[in-house]
C-alpha cells in the first residue's frame, strides 16, 4: 500500500501523466476537437493528475516545513515558488472539477421587454427574474460593430429591481450568477392579410416558415441583410443597417417557386388573396448564463500559478 501511495504521489508518475495529457491533447485537438476533451478517458486523466499533484504538493510542503523547522532550508524563495505553483495547478483542477460536477450554464435569447425567470433556466436559484429593457449595437464609423449592449433589470422576489448593462467583456455578476453578452440576431415583424380575414401580426426568426390558412403556399424568412450590396451577395457589407433588405422564399407544396429581396414596408403577394407586409426588424439578444461554484477556487489557483512561476525570477535577482 505504501509503495502504491509512493508511486501515485511521485514526480515520475506526474511526468508520465503530463506526457500522456500533452500527447493526447495535441491529437484530440487535431482529430476530434469537438468530442475528445469531454470524453471520460480524458477527464479521468485530468483527475489522475489532480490526485498525483495534490499528494505530491502536500509531500513537498511537508518536507519544506520540516527542513525550515530544523533550520536546514537553503533555497527558500525558489522552493516556496515551486510549492505555490503546484498548489495553483491543484486548485485550478479542483475548480474545474467542481464546475463540471455542480456548475450550470444555459443560453437564453430575449427580445426587448421580455422577462425570463432565472430559476426556470438555472435550477436551485433564488427566485430572480431578468428583464431585457433594450438591446442595441454601437457602430464604428466604418459600419463594423463597436460594442453590443443588453440593458437588463434583475427583478427580485419582492418586486424591487436593479438595472445592469451587459456588454462583451463586461458580464453581469450577481449572487454567484454571471450573465454574458454572447450573440444577437434579427426578428422579422410581418403583417399577413388573406382573403377577407383581418390583418394578423407575426414575428419570425431567420429560417421560420409562415403558413397561410387555406393555401398551399408558404413564406420562409431566409435572412436579414442589414447592409445589402449586390457585390457581397448574401453577406452583409457591414453590420450597420445602411441598406436593410430581407431575403425570402415562397414555397408551394414544399417546392420553391420564388425567392426575392424585399425592403421594409414592402407588400409581398403570395397569391391573389394573400399578402405579407414586411413591417420591421427587431433585434434579439443572446445571453449566456453561468453558475460556477468552482470559479473562486480556480481563480485562486490562477493567482498562485502566476506568483509561483515568477518566484524563481525574483529569487535569482535577490541572490545576486
Amino acid at each position: 500500500m505504501r509503495k502504491i501511495y509512493a508511486y501515485i504521489s511521485s514526480m515520475k508518475m506526474g511526468l508520465y501523466i503530463l506526457i500522456i495529457i500533452g500527447v493526447t491533447s495535441a491529437m484530440g485537438s487535431t482529430f476530434f476537437p469537438d468530442t475528445f476533451f469531454q470524453s471520460y478517458i480524458f477527464q479521468a486523466g485530468l483527475l489522475l493528475l489532480l490526485l498525483n499533484m495534490s499528494l505530491c504538493t502536500i509531500r513537498q510542503a511537508k518536507t519544506f516545513w520540516q527542513t525550515v523547522s530544523l533550520g536546514k532550508e537553503k533555497g527558500g524563495v525558489k522552493r516556496i515558488g515551486v510549492i505555490i505553483l503546484h498548489a495553483g495547478i491543484v486548485l485550478i483542477l479542483i475548480g474545474g472539477t467542481v464546475n463540471s460536477l455542480i456548475g450550470q450554464k444555459a443560453d437564453i435569447s430575449m427580445t426587448n421587454g421580455e422577462v425570463i425567470n432565472l430559476s426556470d433556466v438555472l435550477s436551485d436559484n433564488d427566485p430572480l427574474k431578468i428583464k431585457l429593457n433594450e438591446f442595441y449595437i454601437e457602430f464604428n464609423p466604418d459600419g463594423s460593430p463597436c460594442q453590443y449592449f443588453s440593458k437588463v433589470s434583475l427583478i427580485k422576489e419582492l418586486g424591487d429591481s436593479q438595472e445592469f448593462t451587459i456588454s462583451v467583456n463586461n458580464p453581469l455578476a450577481y449572487n454567484g450568477v454571471k450573465v454574458y453578452q454572447q450573440t444577437f440576431g434579427y426578428l422579422l415583424k410581418v403583417q399577413t392579410e388573406s382573403d377577407s380575414r383581418a390583418v394578423t401580426k407575426k414575428t419570425l426568426r431567420e429560417g421560420d416558415v409562415l403558413q397561410f390558412e387555406g393555401s398551399d403556399k408558404s413564406l420562409k424568412f431566409v435572412r436579414y441583410i442589414p447592409n445589402y450590396d449586390p457585390r457581397y451577395g448574401m453577406i452583409s457589407r457591414t453590420t450597420r443597417p445602411d441598406n436593410p433588405k430581407v431575403i425570402y422564399a415562397i414555397y408551394q407544396n414544399n417546392s420553391l417557386i420564388k425567392a426575392g429581396i424585399g425592403s421594409i414596408a414592402d407588400k409581398i403577394e403570395i397569391d391573389t388573396v394573400s399578402f405579407v407586409t414586411l413591417s420591421g426588424i427587431e433585434y434579439y439578444t443572446g445571453l449566456g448564463l453561468k453558475q460556477d461554484p468552482g470559479l473562486p477556487i480556480a481563480a485562486a489557483g490562477g493567482i498562485l500559478l502566476m506568483v509561483g512561476s515568477c518566484c524563481p525570477l525574483l529569487m535569482r535577482r535577490k541572490s545576486k
Binding site: 491533447s25 484530440g28 485537438s29 458580464p171 454572447q182 449566456g288 490562477g302 502566476m306 515568477c310
Partner: peptide
Amino acid sequence: TLTIVLGAIWAEQAWGRYWSWDPKET
C-alpha cells in the same frame, strides 16, 4: 504561464469559460 493565466481570466470575462480547449489554448 502569465500569458495562459491572463488569457484565461480574459476568456472568462469575454466568453464565460476560462478554458475551452480551443486549438490555441490546447
